[in-house]
Design a protein around this nucleic acid. Structure first.
Ligand SMILES: [Mn+2]
Ligand SMILES: [Mn+2]
Ligand SMILES: [Zn+2]
Ligand SMILES: [Zn+2]
Lengths: 153, 153
DNA sequence: TCCCTTATTGGTAATGGTTTTCATTACTAA
DNA sequence: TTAGTAATGAAAACCATTACCAATAAGGGA
């Protein structure tokens, strides 16, 4: 998958009646190159460097579209602005959850314990959707606290 | 605990060098009487009914304080506005997690599977804090999807 | 290749939840 | 009382996100 994404994106867009545009290409380019969790503004600034005409509105609009197409994922970490990263299947990272530092606001990915977490989540989701007749589409697990650098030891 | 909270709140405030004021009393009063997850504005409107001079600013300021004092808990459900509920130990509800309907935005509490979840969380937290040297203070588990009324069957 | 249709863009203004500012009021301890 | 400080409320500021709208450009057909 890696490296052949350009054509893949193209196909995804066309297949849904959308067009492959420069802004979209650049946004996905930025997201492919980073390991970080980027805000709309982060992405705007990064794209702006080699495509100075980009508008912030366009960033927001396309992030929304990309989320809908499930090419990227949106996260709210309670920091006032949303952050985005490439969906698991297009990312260098594996499926993971997050640690959030309440002091420096950094986000840490972890993939450990995933087998266990996934099993646990499956079970819980099954139990819940049955008992509450609730059709679950997504789960959210985050741990908040203080990172290595920010804790008073 | 139930019913004797008024004095308890008083004690909490005094003990921290704060004062027990009418707005604080009313805010806690509203939160004690509901089973819902209230936004700042919800609380403002409720308090406003029998204390019309209350200012929205005062609501926000006190919610922040109450969160710091751990009398209430703040949640972000990705709905643009924060919601609050009484902390477990002061609430009629037991420790619980949330189901969030993406259509009607309602929040559902569930306490089932808690023993299992709590055990799972303890384990995970222990593993994570060791491996990442991350001091965990709080976890967040939410399931998103469509409630009974909102799913297309 | 050139057109035509319409998806897409970018600038600007608006929105809406939350925070700041500041002058006024209410407690509390001496 | 009085001084010192906590707390309040109104209004303005903040700031991420959205709505609006005229201008542009992608891509299918001729
Ligand atoms: Mn991540
Ligand atoms: Mn709840
Ligand atoms: Zn940190
Ligand atoms: Zn619903």
């Amino acid at each position: 998958m890696r490296g052949r994404n350009q054509q893949h994106w193209q196909g995804q867009f066309m297949g849904c009646g959308y067009r492959m545009t420069k802004p979209r290409e650049e946004i996905l380019g930025v997201m492919e190159k980073t390991m970080d969790h980027l805000s709309a503004e982060d992405i705007y600034l990064a794209v702006h460097k080699f495509y100075p005409n980009i508008g912030l509105t366009t960033i927001y609009r396309n992030l929304e579209l990309l989320v809908k197409m499930e090419l990227i994922v949106k996260f709210e970490f309670g920091q006032g602005k949303a952050k985005y990263e490439l969906a698991d299947q297009y990312s260098k990272k594996e499926h993971h959850h997050h640690l959030v530092c309440k002091k420096c606001s950094r986000i840490f990915d972890y993939s450990d314990f995933m087998e266990k977490e996934v099993r646990f989540l499956k079970d819980t989701e099954k139990g819940l959707s049955k008992k509450y007749d609730f059709q679950i589409t997504k789960h959210l697990i985050q741990f908040y606290g203080y990172c290595n650098k920010c804790q008073k030891k």
